[in-house]
Write a protein that binds this DNA or RNA. Structure first.
Lengths: 201, 201
DNA sequence: AAACCCTCTTGACACTGTCAAGTTCTCTTG
DNA sequence: CAAGAGAACTTGACAGTGTCAAGAGGGTTT
């Protein structure tokens, strides 16, 4: 009655454990919030001892860092796809951004919480975040290619703020309580996109 | 050597304890993040037993709810002042919004974290949040008074998203790491305000 | 004087993150 | 093919945590 796993120490199984730990954590984050994640609970859900997660992730922050990294990678992928879609690139990207956040609530909730994942100490996570930031610069470039080189940052920041604000308000904020219950979120995002004009004079 | 407080059971002293608990919590939130708040640590900082905070706030979420409520009240006050300033009302309010968030980091970090303060169970906090939301509607009205009654929500949402996004990126996000180190944040907010035009056709 | 409440305190419990020290398997090296 | 190395865990312990329960002491009311 020592253990349930049939092939415990193979590399294949270890990936399973790693994945199970992350999935367990993501599930808790999405349903109960990041605070509710405990090393022992994710270990329990993964069917391993309370110390197994430490082997892969070092500490609690390590789990969040891994989730953050994965989130930024997937985000970059999806955002790049939206960048290449025909039509209004700003609206397409805003939609993609918010869709990602809503669909990957667990990831998104962690991605911008540097307080819990100690991003500065996890190089891979930082690199993934940088990569994501580059796609944002590409969007700004696509919207307004010949803008002032001396102020290359205002438009990306404005774009990011709008998208990030919308996303966090949808996920965590008290916004949803204020909306009429039959509100279509996709439509609302579209309207916000139509409402916004970037003054590129 | 039973206790240090000279007048323990007077109402005046009780306000002190309440305030000390909140201030201790706010200090921790602003410097280390909300996760780092522990009932016992705030009690220790306030110089009371580990159960005293429970008397006033019920549980951990109660402390966050009280902070959130206080935050929304102060926010409403400051935002209303900005609404009545002469000049570009949208720019004034965006500045006021971001200033509030940066100056009251501890409060702001909690105000939009319904996961940790269980806002739905704290009526006073909800009311304060509603009040704040109303000021936002007033801003939308000031920007574009005769807008379509059937879509009264898009512009407030768009405004809120921009301000909230900017604020959270400044406070918690990885944005600051991406900016040139000599960036003036006030100026950046101004530029974003100038860059934005609300398509009110 | 008695009852009562407000403002706390002390004590206990199950649970948490994490350090330390095994244990069991697989894979490489001699 | 034996031996050692290392990966992938496990069990055990510790201090710290949130919170329930049961007071204790003063002020006010009756």
């Amino acid at each position: 009655m020592a253990r349930q796993r049939s092939t415990p120490a193979t590399p294949e199984a270890s990936v399973d454990v790693q994945r199970a730990v992350l999935d367990g954590a993501l599930d808790i984050i999405a349903t109960e919030g990041a605070e509710a994640v405990s090393m022992r609970e994710v270990a329990r859900r993964a069917g391993v001892s309370h110390q197994a997660p430490y082997h892969y992730f070092g500490d609690r922050a390590g789990i969040f860092a891994a989730i953050s990294e994965e989130g930024f990678r997937r985000f970059t992928e999806e955002f790049r796809r939206a960048l290449e879609l025909p039509g209004d690139v700003a609206a397409n990207c805003l939609r993609a951004y918010v869709s990602f956040a809503v669909a990957h609530k667990g990831h998104y909730r962690v991605m911008f919480r540097s307080d819990i994942c100690g991003i500065r100490t996890h190089e891979q996570t930082m690199k993934a975040a940088d990569e994501a930031f580059l796609t944002l610069l590409d969007l700004a470039e696509a919207i307004h290619p010949q803008r002032d080189a001396a102020d290359a940052i205002s438009l990306p920041v404005a774009l990011w703020a709008q998208a990030h604000g919308l996303a966090t308000l949808f996920i965590d904020g008290p916004l949803l309580d204020k909306l009429p219950p039959d509100t279509n979120l996709d439509e609302l995002v579209n309207k916000v996109a139509q409402l916004t004009e970037w003054n590129t004079k």
